[in-house]
Simulated assay, not measured.
Amino acid sequence: MPRAARKVSSTGIYHIMIRGINQSVIFYDEEDKSKFLDIYI
């Protein structure tokens, strides 16, 4: 059974957490992190 959809925030502010499987590294350097933020935010 899929989870329920997230509620839309009235303020437009969300807290986003990103973790890899088994707490593996997601971003290897600031350039990786910056590129991700440019694409998705």
Score class of each variant (00 low, 15 high):
residue 7 K to S: 12
residue 30 E to P: 00
residue 29 D to S: 13
residue 12 G to Q: 08
residue 20 G to D: 09
residue 32 D to L: 01
residue 16 I to E: 15
residue 1 M to I: 15
residue 33 K to D: 03
residue 20 G to N: 06
residue 29 D to A: 10
residue 22 N to G: 02
residue 1 M to P: 10
residue 4 A to I: 09
residue 38 D to W: 05
residue 24 S to N: 15
residue 36 F to A: 02
residue 41 I to G: 13
residue 18 I to E: 00
residue 2 P to I: 09
residue 41 I to Q: 15
residue 23 Q to T: 04
residue 4 A to V: 06
residue 40 Y to H: 11
residue 40 Y to G: 01
residue 1 M to C: 13
residue 4 A to P: 04
residue 1 M to R: 07
residue 31 E to V: 11
residue 33 K to I: 03
residue 34 S to W: 02
residue 20 G to T: 12
residue 5 A to F: 01
residue 20 G to E: 08
residue 25 V to F: 02
residue 6 R to A: 14
residue 36 F to E: 02
residue 22 N to D: 15
residue 17 M to W: 06
residue 28 Y to H: 11
residue 40 Y to I: 12
residue 29 D to F: 01
residue 28 Y to N: 09
residue 32 D to W: 03
residue 17 M to A: 13
residue 38 D to P: 00
residue 26 I to D: 02
residue 9 S to F: 07
residue 10 S to V: 14
residue 19 R to V: 08
residue 21 I to Q: 04
residue 40 Y to E: 06
residue 19 R to C: 09
residue 7 K to V: 13
residue 17 M to F: 06
residue 21 I to W: 03
residue 14 Y to V: 13
residue 24 S to G: 11
residue 34 S to G: 04
residue 2 P to Y: 01
residue 26 I to A: 05
residue 5 A to N: 04
residue 23 Q to Y: 07
residue 16 I to Q: 14
residue 25 V to H: 01
residue 33 K to W: 08
residue 31 E to H: 05
residue 4 A to D: 10
residue 27 F to C: 00
residue 12 G to P: 00
residue 30 E to D: 15
residue 33 K to H: 10
residue 36 F to K: 05
residue 29 D to Y: 03
residue 23 Q to V: 04
residue 31 E to I: 06
residue 24 S to L: 04
residue 37 L to M: 08
residue 30 E to H: 12
residue 32 D to M: 02
residue 12 G to T: 05
residue 10 S to H: 10
residue 34 S to E: 11
residue 37 L to Y: 03
residue 12 G to H: 07
residue 3 R to Q: 07
residue 30 E to I: 12
residue 7 K to R: 13
residue 21 I to H: 05
residue 25 V to Y: 02
residue 22 N to C: 03
residue 25 V to T: 12
residue 2 P to F: 00
